[in-house]
Design a protein around this nucleic acid. Structure first.
Lengths: 210, 210
DNA sequence: AAAATCTGTTTCCTATAGTGAACAAAAGAA
DNA sequence: TTCTTTTGTTCACTATAGGAAACAGATTTT
């Protein structure tokens, strides 16, 4: 055995890393999730493909689920593993915030091509950025280059009609009520094709998932 | 089963979460960690308390380790679980995806109180879930309990007029064009107050920040 | 009320994860 | 070379996880 081991052990202890993993009451957590969604064991069974009995045993810590079982769990319950393992539910579960924006009362940010109206802009630390945009541009040439930003964007046409130019696709005609979801790192640009300027509602993601 | 469940189910389906979890080459990852530390199977056995043979089988994907085994692994190797599971760091910097939904062409998911039309539901693994909802409910009593789900929600009234009931606030009247952003873990419920059923556009966040 | 349906638990049984020993291949040590 | 020692894999066996069905308690129906 190489010396590495001892040294690593020493470092590990020195680092103050918890030498033991806490019990991790997985069963407890599972039941918590199940009940909070008001699911019965049968429901969860349907979702995960695991037998009722198995689920019962897991919840009562009578068995230690196989990793494949855990995968079925997180898949079926549509949660991710950290969520399943983080019983510390006291996680400053930010909840209760609210930000109202009356029609036309958003923050205006005009540009040559667009006129943005930022919605819900009093709320910081949010994971989505909603805004209403009046599309002034009338031709693709109005843009000096692609609009491009990290994350994803959802967009619905509220008024008028637009042409969505994008880096990897042919231009797409969108009419009132149509919507589209796309990766906003892909270059994109909107132009109005209707008589009056078109109006679209957009929502972008912000920040980055780990 | 309360309405909550239906909506959650709808959202889950809409989210396009892959029904199966990918292989998750845990064995490969384990070997990677082991070799990078220049440990032998015996070393790891010492550290984790698992048998050499067991470790070998895990590395070769011949067995699916028990959750207790996984705990021994992360404890003994002094790593945390995400570390053990995040070898697929090749995270395709997804860009270029696109999903168009023409007006009225979304997936319908009716419930007693709402009629959801899921938008952009062909795209899996997205960070937002957009949907258009016809609000059928006419009174708060139509709900058996609060609608509630993790994450945040943005909402804009497209047609009609609604009353937004929420757990921590007084009911709020929203008219066409008004929008609001709130933590959706806070109980909430919408009712139409206009002649015809109101229509709102909602976007929810999904997934969990680590 | 009884009957029928659900809930969660428990009882088998089988499928499989985990262990120790045997194994073959490689690496030193003589 | 030959004899050890150490590597990883494979075998045989035991321990245990997972599933079908039976179970009892609660709830709903009739």
């Amino acid at each position: 055995m190489p010396d590495t081991t001892d040294q690593d052990a020493a470092l590990r202890i020195a680092s103050g890393r918890k030498p033991f993993v806490e019990p991790l009451r997985l069963g407890e957590r599972l039941r918590e999730i199940r009940l909070s969604n008001q699911w019965t064991l049968e429901d969860v069974s349907q979702r995960t493909g695991l037998a009722r009995s198995t689920l019962s045993k897991i919840e009562n810590d009578q068995i230690s689920p196989t990793f494949t079982a855990v995968q079925k769990l997180i898949g079926g319950l549509d949660i991710d593993l950290p969520q399943l393992l983080s019983p510390p539910r006291q996680q400053t579960r930010t909840m209760g915030r609210r930000d109202l924006t009356r029609r036309g009362q958003g923050d205006l940010h005009p540009t040559p091509t667009y006129e943005h109206e930022l919605l819900s802009c009093e709320l910081a630390q949010k994971r989505m950025i909603p805004f209403k945009t009046i599309v002034r541009a009338r031709a693709f040439e109005d843009f000096s280059e692609w609009v491009r930003h990290d994350g994803e964007e959802f967009l619905m046409v509220l008024e008028g009609e637009i042409l969505l130019y994008s880096e990897f696709y042919e231009p797409l005609r969108l009419e009132c009520g149509d919507s589209i979801y796309f990766d906003s790192a892909m270059g994109h640009a909107l132009v109005s094709t209707s008589e009056q300027d078109a109006v679209v509602l957009s929502v972008c993601t912000r920040g980055e998932a780990a």
